[in-house]
């Protein structure tokens, strides 16, 4: 058991170590000053200090709230829309041009407008997160529901499954592996959405902290520490979803 864990962990640790060593070498060989590229140990100690003195924590709380709300709302709407698209050709014909257009419009350009219309509070960030999360999950749901085996749906007919039973017992579980593909993408995009929303105006959040560190404190190590925190947030979210996915989808051969 322990040996297996070791064997699984070893490559992860090796790659992480390699990354840190390469980073340090880059700083040393390139002779970069801290304000351009801080060495890993400086970033690490800044990260610890910023967590200890409470610099980062409130910003993490803000960003996490935005991500979770935006993700929940965006994915909820996406699941419903994706199902409608899969089941109704009319819905697909009517909606898909707008969905694609919305997706093709850079969220970076929309964000300031959304901040203008909905203020710089939580609402605008949640909207931006929802928007960015929506498309991949809606498309994955559509494709997933359409890919559910017709033979299994026929089994449902034999046993006189009601439309709701077909949805909950056959279509959703059948589409789940593909839906989770979209959810994984959506979760990482939600992090980006929150940061973009904060850049469009905000009082707190990791995006705001980036701007503070960069623009008024000139604290490059804090900037890196914030980036690391954001990355960790994204990875944690991704793992959480993998965990849920494993529980719900499991091995299907």
């Amino acid at each position: 058991m322990t040996r297996r864990v070791l064997r699984d962990l070893l490559p992860v640790v090796a790659v992480a170590t390699g990354f840190v060593v390469a980073w340090k070498l880059l700083v040393v060989i390139g002779g970069y000053p801290t304000f351009i590229l801080p060495p890993p140990e400086v970033v690490a100690s800044r990260l610890v200090a910023a967590w200890r003195d409470g610099t980062i924590e409130p910003h993490v709380a803000t960003t996490l709230t935005e991500i979770l709300l935006g993700f929940l709302i965006g994915s909820g709407l996406a699941l419903v829309t994706g199902y409608a698209l899969a089941r109704s050709r009319l819905a697909e014909r009517l909606l898909s041009p707008y969905l694609v257009a919305a997706q093709a419009t850079p969220i970076l350009a929309l964000a300031p407008l959304i901040a203008l219309w909905f203020g710089t509070g939580l609402a605008s960030k949640v909207i931006i997160c929802s928007l960015i999360v929506f498309f991949p999950i809606a498309v994955a749901t559509m494709v997933g529901v359409r890919s559910v085996d017709r033979q299994l749906l026929e089994v449902g007919r034999v046993y006189r499954a009601t439309p709701l039973q077909v949805l909950t017992r056959l279509e959703i579980p059948g589409a789940l592996p593909l839906i989770f593909g979209g959810i994984r993408v959506g979760a990482t995009l939600a992090v980006i959405g929150a940061i973009i929303g904060e850049w469009a105006g905000g009082e707190s959040g990791l995006g705001v902290l980036i701007n503070l560190a960069r623009g008024s404190l000139f604290d490059t190590p804090l900037l890196f520490a914030t980036l690391l925190t954001i990355a960790a947030l994204g990875v944690a979210l991704y793992w959480l979803i993998l965990l849920v996915e494993h529980q719900l989808v499991g091995e299907r051969g």
Partner: peptide, 23 residues
Amino acid sequence: FQEPRLLPWRSSLENVALPLELA
């Protein structure tokens, strides 16, 4: 059916129980 048409996400027991669950 010609193919077993079992739901791949359910155990054998849950597959057998499907008609009962729907009922």
